[in-house]
Design a protein around this nucleic acid. Structure first.
Length: 436
RNA sequence: GUGGCUGUAGCUCAAUUGGUUAGAGCGUCUCUCUGUGGAAGAGAAGGUUGUGGGUUCAAGUCCCAUCAGCCACCCCA
């Protein structure tokens, strides 16, 4: 009999009531502030793109299309709601690259859609910050992006104990697999790295079993050595290898860049939160060099809250010659879980000073409109009453709503051509002349 | 997408083995305290127990489906 519609939003989508949206705004404002302080400019792009740009961006066509919201429009085009920004911004850069001098520093805060199974910190609709720098192969761009990500964490009030930034480089991993583990083929190296990517969740027994199944010829002690590498170990290992002229190193330039990056980090304050982590692989699709993730160190939420890396070849899907790029994406949902988990939201949400202007007497309403208009012109936020109230009631309401000031304008004030401004926190009252 | 757990008022939770008209606190609204607040008192609204079906004399309670949330897997762009 009930033919009314349901009131819940559809699975994985969210309603934002004002108190929720306030948190969102706080997160967006913080992201924006730090990006702008680094000289990045904000952009945006279409919510819909041709589905093919997402299917082409990964190595692994079979699995990537699965979580895409895809449909055919009235013109027969295969379209998709954007699940990420990188292909869009890549397309934009490929299209407009000539207008801008390099390097191009861009960021965006936009909404994305993925047909995933919703969980805490993961929905079908979410906002994501994307920060990228295009047209620079320099190691200093890698450092800049990493430093920007870390600064944002600090800007949110995070301390060194709450997070770390985990770095890796797939070419380094491949090189290590070859030199130390004796894995010669790129295919085996790639298989192993994919397995290691899942190792933290699955554990040692699982990894051993999978290696047996994949028939990888790997000494488990050597592998353990790889898994336990830290920043100093990697630097030592690379220093020796890179100085050995008789040694052939595939992707030597990329590995040299990685070495340089780690040695710089090792000498800066970034060292406090940056670590080498052999298990970071980032899905392996379009990343070409540095990969990194920022991890929440809260034991209840041990997960990546942002991730990114270098993708120097991605733009070759749009043009002959690619444009080097590095950047990261940072979702709003894991961020909220992080901030709530460490209690970093209390007292940080913006609070605007608000004037409450109750109707003490409806006879004065016309005058009140003029007074309110003047106050708003002066930049104040004025909330007017909607019905006649006694002064006592008005103050109670102001309390409950958290208004900061109450404008009192009754008979007395009208006769003296003033209004009374009461500060709710201090209780102090001032008479203000109404001039014009 | 697969598997598991969960769903009672806006929120936190009650409701005997299936048994009257599903309750409480907080919150919300109204009133009193008659131009000075954070309080107190009085009262009210708010639920077809997520939704739909089934079993039964009788369903919040049992069964099925569905929707949504959480957890694990998958995926993580």
């Amino acid at each position: 009999m009930n033919n009314k519609l349901g009131t819940q939003p559809i699975k994985g989508f969210r309603d934002f009531v004002p108190s929720d949206w306030k948190v969102q705004q706080y997160i967006f404002d913080t992201w924006r502030k730090v990006c702008e302080s680094y000289g990045y400019e904000e952009y945006n792009g279409p919510v819909l793109e041709y589905a093919t740009i997402y299917e082409k961006s990964g190595d692994d066509l079979g699995t990537t299309g699965k979580e895409l919201y895809k449909f055919t429009d009235q013109g027969g085009r295969e379209l998709a709601l954007r699940p990420e920004m990188t292909p869009t911004v890549g397309r934009m850069i490929a299209e407009y690259e000539k207008i801008y001098s390099k390097p191009i520093r861009w960021f965006s805060i936009a909404q994305f859609f993925r047909a995933e199974k919703p969980q805490k910190g993961r929905g079908r609709e979410f906002f994501q910050l994307n920060v990228d720098i295009f047209g620079s192969e320099s190691v200093y761009s890698d450092i800049e992006i990493i430093s920007l990500a870390v600064d944002m964490m600090y800007m949110f009030g995070a301390t060194d104990e709450m997070f770390d930034l985990r770095l890796n480089n797939r070419y380094f991993a491949y090189f290590y697999f070859k030199e130390v583990l004796g894995l010669e083929s790129r295919e085996d190296q790639s298989t192993l790295l994919k397995l290691i990517d899942r190792f933290p969740k699955k554990g040692k027994d699982w990894l051993g079993e999978e290696i047996r199944i994949a028939k990888l010829d790997v000494n488990f002690n050597d592998l353990e050595k790889y898994l336990n590498l830290n920043l100093e170990n990697v630097l030592d290992f690379l220093k020796v290898s890179l100085n050995n002229d008789s040694l052939y190193i595939e992707n030597k330039e990329d590995i040299e860049l990685f070495y340089k990056m780690l040695s710089i980090i090792n000498e800066t304050k970034l060292k406090k939160v940056c670590i080498y982590d052999a298990t970071i692989a980032r899905g392996l699709d379009y990343y070409t060099g540095t990969v990194f993730e920022v991890f929440d160190r809260n034991p209840k939420n041990n997960r990546a809250i942002l991730g990114g890396g270098r993708y120097d070849d991605l733009l070759s899907m749009y043009r002959e010659k690619s444009i080097p790029a590095i950047g990261f994406g940072w979702g709003d949902m894991p961020t909220r879980v992080f901030l709530e988990g460490w209690n970093l939201l209390d007292n940080r949400l913006s609070k605007v000073q608000t004037y409450y202007f109750p109707i003490i007497s409806t006879d004065n309403y016309v005058d009140m409109l003029d007074i309110a208009k003047d106050l708003r012109t002066d930049g104040h936020i004025v909330v007017m009453g909607t019905r006649e109230r006694s002064v006592g009631d008005a103050l109670r309401i102001a309390n409950k709503k958290g208004y900061d000031f109450v404008v009192i304008y009754g008979e007395e004030e009208k006769n003296n051509h003033v209004f009374k401004l009461k500060n709710m926190k201090s209780g102090k009252e001032n008479m203000v002349d109404i001039d014009g």
